[in-house]
Nucleic acid binder design. Sequence first.
DNA 1: TTAACATATGAACAACTATTCATATGTACA
DNA 2: TGTACATATGAATAGTTGTTCATATGTTAA
Lengths: 96, 96
Amino acid sequence: MRKIDENELFDLAELFKVFGDSTRIRILYKLSDKEICVQEIADSLGMTQSAISHQLKILKQSKLIKSRRDGKSILYSLADDHVRSIINQGLEHVEE
Amino acid sequence: MRKIDENELFDLAELFKVFGDSTRIRILYKLSDKEICVQEIADSLGMTQSAISHQLKILKQSKLIKSRRDGKSILYSLADDHVRSIINQGLEHVEE
DNA sequence: TTAACATATGAACAACTATTCATATGTACA
DNA sequence: TGTACATATGAATAGTTGTTCATATGTTAA
């Protein structure tokens, strides 16, 4: 494997930490094929709006999702294809 | 993205949780090109033998690493190429 | 402007986790 | 068998984190 410095490894751990929570993974999966508003995510996961909003903030800070306003709602979606790739790569290990 | 059930998402989060710790990521990186014994990992990371041993146990339970005895030492190495793939995929996102 | 709706945020608490310390287990060699 | 070496493990602790509750911010339409 190519050379990776300490800071990069630290950032990498931080990234995986974000994926390492079932609420956040479920949110990312919900967003994998379409953009959704906060309340819809909360309802579909059976969680409070506040809990979801807190997690969306973490996901956005990690640049895994993006958002845009649409009237009163805010629609969230995946930031780019890396997210799908990381999830798919993880699934290959889980499915053994 | 293809259909994934709740249990699979839960397992996926558990997997990423293991990657989501800088000590464990650094261990995995150390093991990425050769097998190493416990004390050598501890020395190279500047941590105690006990701390490393605890983390190795977690990594092994997640089937990310394997081990074999060599005399008094136990040599650890990556379980398979999935580990490298997952790390590389994560790096692509971190390096932006 | 006011009411209703949608989302964000801060504080507090409970649950979880990584490390430390002390010690146990296992191996090799004299 | 006894000693030194290498690793594993259990309990305790300190630090971290996800959720809840209450409330603030922002938007729309009457």
